[in-house]
Design a protein around this nucleic acid. Structure first.
Length: 478
RNA sequence: GGCCUGUUCGACUAGGGGUUUAGGUCAUCGCCCUUUCACGGCGGUAACACGGGUUCGAAUCCCGUACAGGCUACCA
């Protein structure tokens, strides 16, 4: 049987990085084993409906490079892939459970339930449904139905131990005697996660359920449901959690958790994927940098760890830098076009490409190819006074004037010619070249940090350099 | 509270009875390269939660304790 896995997020408005990792592992597992990756939207909680959330989720998932084979807008033989469009199925199967005696109608009000839990709590007992409605007689049920009382469908949880093999954690044993009679169908007719999840995973022929560790305790309920329906359950793999720096479950309160946030900050999808892949998995070798394609070949569940991993932005930044360094200049150019436009920069591609190569090792985020290199496109608006104070000598401006003259005389404005001219100027002035280097950089670019000076000047061209030098000589004040 | 899961440098992790003076990466510190800023190179600091057991031998297997996290909804 070929592998079929799914990512089944609830559309809350954005894609959580933990969700991205779950999606990634599912995707990689499918690709590795030549199977299918399915996207299913779990929107059975109408009170948490967020307009546009699903569309945003799909956009972000696609941005990250995780293509799904079946899903809401990709179609497929097991649709619809949105749970709110499948309620008929859940109701039919819920009824089947009722008829088989594996579930019962519960008419308890929210008030009674609250009161019951309060009482249990006060007596130091675990809060649990007291099965009040399980023992309703047929006539009592009829009466309540006729009266039009709202009800839920609860599953009967038996008093026996459920065992299952987790692909990551090994044998798990849970005694459902300490599990609630779970609500399967809510009073609004929608299913809960547990029911919908089991039905859909079966209906969509899912072979491996790869999900977060938070689902581990409720897996026995799911296994029971498969049993009740007479279905074989898929294999389960529960992934370790992603953590805040204080080791609590990764949350919005402590920094950015939305993939969209990282995208907006200029992180590369490749870096985010590489980083997140290593949060809980490693290849067992010392290779750190992986493309999605390489991950597809290397990934497998048997190298996924068991303990939670802290989401460490420093390391993400490093991955980002590494992926940026490896990216072809043409691709970078395409990606920074919007940033160039934002700064109203118009320059030939060939020119921008040269700037990109020069800036490569000095950039951590994509937009910095532009924002750290503005002086390539426009004359400096000011000069870094602090560096001027540190580097200026009484005669520096005169030296620069002198240097401008010599630069103007260069026939081919290449980096080695420029270097030679600077050295000659220094010699004729009786100073060290170092007395000219930083002042020249400031005069031309306005700032003290930047790429190799002579290469920078070469790209700028003779006219621009001379013009800026002359302007600097008349503008800079000590 | 109950149930479940986990615990190797500050972080991500390798190692799963002798190959280990516990390896790699990020971060941090130092040196080199560099007339800037970076990149890069070299090196340093730094970890098997604790207690018992099994064994000739335990980071590795077993038990317990501690700590951490998750779950305990008509949320997912």
């Amino acid at each position: 049987m070929s592998v079929r896995v799914r990512f089944a997020p609830s559309p809350t408005g954005y894609l959580h990085v933990g969700g991205l990792r779950t999606a990634l592992y599912n995707y990689l597992f499918a690709r590795k084993h030549g199977g299918k990756f399915i996207l299913r939207i779990e929107d059975t909680d109408r009170t948490r409906f967020v307009a546009g959330a699903m569309e945003n989720l799909i956009t972000t998932l696609r941005w990250s490079g995780l293509d799904f084979d079946e899903g809401p807008d990709a179609g497929g033989p097991h649709g619809p892939y949105i749970q709110s469009e499948r309620t008929g199925l859940y109701q039919r199967l819920g009824k089947e459970l009722l008829e088989k005696g594996h579930a019962y109608k519960c008419f308890c009000t929210a008030e009674r339930l609250d009161e019951m839990r309060m009482l249990q709590q006060r007596m130091g007992q675990p809060p649990r449904y007291d099965k009040f409605c399980e023992h309703l007689t047929a006539t009592e049920i009829k009466e309540k139905e006729v009266a039009g009382l709202p009800f839920v469908v609860r599953m009967k949880v038996p008093e026996r131990t459920v065992r299952f093999q987790d692909e990551i954690r090994g044998l798990i044993e849970i005694d459902p005697s300490n599990i609630d009679d779970q609500v399967l169908l809510k009073s609004d007719g929608f299913p809960t996660y547990h029911l919908a999840n089991v039905i859909d995973d079966h209906d969509m022929e899912i072979t491996h359920v790869i999900r977060g560790e938070e689902w581990l305790p409720s897996t026995p309920k799911h296994i029971l449901l498969y049993d009740y329906f007479g279905w074989q359950h898929p294999k389960f793999a529960h992934l370790p959690l992603l953590l805040n720096s204080d080791r609590s479950k990764l949350s919005k309160r402590q920094g950015d958790v939305a993939v969209e946030d990282y995208r907006a900050k200029g992180y590369e999808r490749e870096a985010l994927i590489n980083f997140v892949a290593f949060l809980g998995w490693n290849p067992g070798t010392e290779k750190e940098l992986f493309s999605l394609e390489e991950l597809e070949k290397e990934f497998d569940l048997d190298r996924v760890g068991k303990s939670g991993a802290i989401f460490n932005v420093d390391k993400l930044n490093w991955y980002n830098q590494q992926h940026l360094k490896a990216k072809p200049a043409e691709e970078i150019l395409d990606q920074i076009r919007p940033v160039l436009a934002e700064h109203a920069i118009q320059a030939p591609d060939s020119f921008v490409l040269r700037v990109i190569e020069l800036m490569r090792d000095r950039v951590n985020f994509l937009p910095e190819f532009v924002t750290f290199a503005l002086y390539f496109y426009q004359d400096p608006a000011g000069y870094d006074q602090e560096t001027i104070r540190a580097k200026w000598m009484p005669d520096t401006l005169i030296w620069l004037q002198n240097l401008a003259g010599r630069l103007a005389g260069i026939s081919v404005f290449s980096h080695d010619q420029i270097e030679a001219a600077l050295k000659e100027t220094a010699e004729s002035l009786g100073i060290k070249p170092g007395g000219l280097v930083q002042p020249l950089r400031i005069a031309v670019s306005g700032v003290s940090a930047g790429p190799a000076l002579y290469h920078m000047l070469e790209i700028l061209g003779k006219e621009t350099v001379i013009r800026r030098l002359e302007k600097a000589v008349t503008t800079i004040q000590l």
